[in-house]
Write a protein that binds this DNA or RNA. Sequence first.
DNA 1: GCCAACGTTGGC
DNA 2: GCCAACGTTGGC
Length: 139
Amino acid sequence: MNHWLFKSEPSVWSWDDQVAKGDTGEEWDGVRNYQARNFMRDMTLGDRGFFYHSQSEKAVVGIVEICATAHPDSTTDDDRWDCVDIRAVMPFATPVTLAQIKAEPDLARMPLVLSPRLSVQPVDPAAWDIICRMGGVSP
DNA sequence: GCCAACGTTGGC
DNA sequence: GCCAACGTTGGC
């Protein structure tokens, strides 16, 4: 199983919005970046990811699961853009902030730190474990 | 609210 | 195919 990170502005699509969708989940649509799209095409059913709030909050707030693999993005007719569906699995007991991640040497090489604008990105197993623990959930 | 970084677009 | 212009993102 691979791990990922999904970034969202909470004022547009928040963790609470995601939770409200229940087990049906929701399309992670609107991605117009090839790198991010390619990562979504690599995702498989059951893969898990972090849900990150950008802007004012800047913290990982929960864990999501891929519930549909890549398919055309319904928000555009442009067939270049695909997206997956994700559903909320569990919230973090304590959100893990970007500042905390930057302060942790083992996490400093995450795309989140090096490429802050990449909206969908992979998380390596070690980073997954560390951040889950920091968030108060079991990996 | 500002600004820097980056990716995409479009003209040549 | 290159490169300048532009729009968007996200941290501060």
